[in-house]
Design a protein around this nucleic acid. Structure first.
Lengths: 219, 219, 219, 219
DNA sequence: TATGAATGAGTCTTCATTCAT
DNA sequence: GATGAATGAAGACTCATTCAT
């Protein structure tokens, strides 16, 4: 369990959890609609079904709201990912399941994920560090999955790590381009299938020793 | 050429261009350091070497500053891209050159590009539309390059379009992960080479008719 | 004895006294550290070992806390003064004992006395009146002591009263200047001895008819 | 000249001085009536004839207002004191003039001086240091005056310094007791004359080597 | 009596924008 | 055209007090 980083004036732990969930739900609505800076604490309180004063009994500053939202989202994503790959033994299938889960999760939570990427700038240095550490967990999972996938083969270590860095983010591009993609594709399922194929092909660059460019071609 | 979308009180066209360049340079400095909402017009004016009042002779609102910055950046990127692929005939090399140019441009302008992605939320709906249209230009360029690259082959049209949507954004992941990547890789050149290999492999999924998942495996 | 001026919801008198003492002790800690306005009722309650709600069973408002603290301090000071001069017959010694007791009491209770002087501004008009009446008691004691000290001599009545007004406050200057005095003097005993000498010399101006200034020297 | 410690957004120095004087005058009115914490910035702005926003162009925080008020008052007091003793050669008369000036100044500025004593608690540590340094200047003046007054005599150094610490503050007692004194005395001139006599007698304890108490009389 | 969560009016402070000179 | 002082609406946050349990 992680410690409660965000300070509160309330003692009743169960109440804290309940009110925080209200705050998270309210904040996600308001933040995804207007972004962090254009959202007022008053609006968030209202959407959470709390009064101003009551809200501030459960957080210490507006910034704290980003944190509890972030904590919530990343916890949900981690849990869903665990479930998605639980019990799958075959490395190839395990990797596919993870990629597919990631695609779906990003798609399902598009708005809040976009919000988090955009507002990571609103986080102070220390918080940003925590956030990046969380992402690192995620990336290490993909690193592990790739390593097992290519077990026994002669892989280029650097490429494997790079792929692990790329993989979890590629679905995010889908959210950046969602309006364009929706117009062009019959269904988002098709899009996800296409991304999966692209990625699965892409990782085939890991075991090879090929070089796309010769050094003298670059400036 | 497009009309001057941002209104001004000044008549002298040449002066407008000079002052706007000052504003753009100042704004980029301030925006990349603190983000749009935490930057004050005062700071931007100061960094631009203008007084408050003078600044407002060349823009009508703070929001306008994002627009002229965005105009500037996208124009520069378009011009550089044109130069990068000018004169290259071979479709494969032309595509590689474009990908490589994109990687370098994104890397070189990391901070301002991150800013633009993050603050696109600050744009009103109409402005957002303009912005997305610009991106569409870029994507259509890649679509065209891919089409020529696979000319004569039996391509999956949807996959080709999807790849065009993905390609320009993959380097952006590099900027999201820059701290992690810097720690792990000898040089960013290695990173870019790796991304290029990954992408070039990935697009090989375009001509094929493979299906990663059977439909019944998905929920 | 005076009536309970500060209203309470509680019937049990003994409990009231016990809880009030808790409040007084807690409040003195918090008030002397941060002043009245920067102290929150929450902090006082905590330091008093009470909950918010319980605290408000024994007082009606934050302002009441000043009152009960003030009551307490002045009662203690009066009692100590009574003890200090009890049984001393010789008027000169009696006066000295009173002056010395005052010096010690002010020194020992520096922080709370400073607090009371500073926060008398926080009292409403009526409360201020009560407070000043208390001080008047104290001053009348000194008036009486001086009158006995100069019994049989031809005193200037006005000067005697003025001295009675000055005497109890001179030690307060010591608390205003404590940091400077601590640096310059070996011990605070020396300081107190010096003040005593100064004051005892000063009151010699009471029987005389001297005039420091001629009227025409003043504007 | 001291540097401008309080930050401002305004460039025109002459305007700063004019507006600051307005702020000082407004603040003194409001502060003396209600104390620092009960005064709102809005009230001060209004009394100063400025809008909220304009006020904040000349100060950075509410606390700054105490500082500029304090600066102003102490500067005025210093200047008046300089004038009052200028040109007086005889040490005895010079000391009397200083004491009399101090009495008058404290009396004339009672309310603001009371305010300053009371609100010194509102100052942060660093500011308090500056304030105390100012007082030290004042005290050193009295030390100097006393030294000249007793030049050639065998003085007790400690007592001389102590007297210098006491002298400037004794008139402050007059302001603490003003209501009582006004009732009892024909005119405040009489009060001041009495204090002067008391003090002039008191300083006669400086050259002597007397001890008011024997050690065994104290606890 | 005790508890502590809820309340919301009140405060300081910021800053985009205007406009007289 | 340039200047920079003035404006005031808006927002984050605090905390004394109440009241249901």
């Amino acid at each position: 369990m992680e410690k409660r980083a965000v300070k509160t004036k309330i003692k009743n732990e169960e109440l804290i959890d309940r009110r925080r969930k209200q705050i998270i739900d309210g904040a996600i609505k308001v933040f995804t609609a207007k972004g962090f800076h254009k959202s007022t604490v008053r609006e968030i309180a209202k959407e959470a079904g709390l009064t101003m004063g009551s809200l501030y009994n459960y957080i210490a500053s507006k910034e704290d709201i980003i944190h509890i939202v972030y904590d919530y989202i990343t916890r949900v994503l981690r849990e869903e990912m665990s479930k998605a790959i639980a019990g799958i033994e075959d490395p190839e299938e395990r990797l596919k399941a993870a990629l597919y889960q990631n695609l779906n999760a990003v798609y399902k939570n598009q708005e809040i994920i976009m919000f988090i990427y955009k507002e990571s700038a609103s986080l102070d240095k220390k918080s940003l560090h925590t956030v990046l550490a969380r992402e690192t967990d995620y990336i290490e999972l993909f690193e592990e999955l790739l390593r097992e996938r290519f077990k026994g083969q002669d892989v280029n270590e650097e490429r494997l790590r790079l792929a692990a860095d790329l993989l979890p983010y590629i679905p995010v591009i889908m959210t950046f381009r969602r309006w364009s993609l929706k117009r062009r594709f019959e269904s988002m399922d098709n899009v996800m299938e296409g991304i999966l194929d692209f990625v699965l092909k892409g990782i085939e660059s890991i075991p090879e020793k090929m070089n796309a460019l010769k050094n003298d071609e670059r400036k």
